[in-house]
Computed example of a mutant assay.
Amino acid sequence: MEPGNDTQISEFLLLGLSQALEQQSLIFGLFLSMYLVTVFGNLLIILAVSSDSHLHTPMYFFLSNLSLVDICFTSTTIPKMLWNIQTQSKVITYAGCITQMYFFLLFGGSDIFLLTAMAYDRYVAICHPLHYMVIMNLRLCGLLVLVSWIMSVLNSLLESLMVLRLSFCSDLEIPHFFCEFNQVVQLACSDTLLNNIIMYFSAGLLCGGSLAGILYSYSKIISSIYGIPSAHGKYKAFSTCASHLSVVSLFYGTVLGVYLSSAASQSSHSSATASVMYTVVTPMLNPFIYSLRNKDIKGALQRF
């Protein structure tokens, strides 16, 4: 059975987080609340940064882009989940599943690249403060964001096209609340070796490479902070990257926790439940982390 127009597959079934009917209202209310908080909180960050001239700096330029990506990231999965619960339907079309998978990979990759760019920004600010504005000029910041989008588009396009070559049999139930790439590949009847190779290679290159870049940046940052003679100077230097470090720890901690725990338990339901952490909870908490730990953002939100 060939993919594309020759395939007999027209739809998949998203099993969601729970099959119990009495829990559907609770799940709907909880996820609707988290989604609204995510959109509203990240939108406030974007509006605060764009409206306050004091925040027109590289760090907040990257932050506003991260907030935009987080809104799009959650909007890829949660509205469809809420719609299915409301209509008591589990169906997602084949085209809709591939589209959802594409945009999930796109915005997830952009999230990773932006966190890496923000780590580089903090590295330059602390390790090369006198040359900060020269190095982190508008052109470089725009280029870093552009490269982030290009790399994410190419990766998500490659992985989505690789799914199109697969053929599927009668088992079309996805034990997840969205079309998670690995879960969809596991349903295929055809050979998935090439898909798995590309999936693990991309994950290693994107996540592993980005995490290595972040860790290298922070190793240099810590070395520079230790070289500052005064305790006040050390605290001030560390406070400029505390919010970013918190977001990075939350994002990578939840992603690694999800995939390591799912690999150990081999439970698709456990993986779906745990993935809520990085698909919903982390984007929701990012605005709180930056607004609570950052006086500039607090001031801009108050003025806004």
Rank of each mutant, 00 (worst) to 15 (best):
S262L: 00
G204P: 07
S160F: 05
W149K: 11
V147H: 09
K220N: 04
G16M: 09
V255F: 13
V258S: 11
Y290I: 14
V69R: 04
S33G: 14
V258A: 13
Q8M: 11
S217P: 03
L172V: 15
Q266S: 05
I228T: 07
G204R: 09
A125T: 05
Q19V: 05
L158Q: 01
R122G: 02
I289S: 07
A117D: 04
M162C: 10
S265Y: 06
L157F: 08
L154K: 10
V39A: 02
L164P: 08
L26S: 12
I214F: 03
C127T: 12
S148C: 14
Q8A: 09
S267M: 06
S67M: 09
S53D: 12
S210V: 13
L211Q: 04
L157I: 04
S271P: 05
I222F: 14
S190I: 03
M133H: 07
S160C: 05
T254S: 13
V134H: 10
S268I: 09
D171I: 15
I71L: 08
E159T: 05
L32I: 14
G299T: 14
S230V: 05
T116I: 01
A125N: 08
C127L: 09
I78W: 03
I85Q: 00
N195V: 14
T273E: 02
E22T: 03
C72V: 07
L14W: 01
L146N: 13
T279D: 09
D121V: 00
Y290M: 12
H269N: 13
E180N: 13
D191T: 02
L63W: 12
F107Y: 11
I297T: 15
L115Q: 03
G208M: 10
M199H: 07
N42W: 04
H176K: 07
L194C: 07
T76L: 00
G29R: 08
K298W: 00
L82S: 01
F251C: 01
L206G: 02
A119T: 01
D6F: 02
T192A: 02
Q23D: 12
S160T: 13
K80R: 07
T282G: 08
M81H: 09
W149I: 15
F201E: 00
L245S: 12
A125Q: 04
S268F: 15
Y60D: 08
L206E: 07
K298N: 00
G142M: 05
I174D: 09
S51T: 14
V280H: 01
S170D: 15
S267Q: 12
N155D: 11
Y35C: 14
V280L: 07
D121S: 06
G233L: 08
K234M: 10
I174K: 10
F201Q: 02
S271V: 06
P229F: 09
Q100F: 08
I9N: 05
I135M: 11
L82P: 03
D121I: 00
G109F: 04
F181L: 15
T7E: 01
G257I: 14
F40L: 06
D6M: 00
L206T: 11
N286S: 13
L193V: 13
A188V: 04
I225L: 02
V153K: 04
I225Y: 09
Y132L: 06
D171N: 15
Q19S: 15
Y278F: 12
M136P: 04
M101V: 08
G109R: 03
M284W: 05
H232I: 13
M118D: 00
S51V: 03
K295H: 08
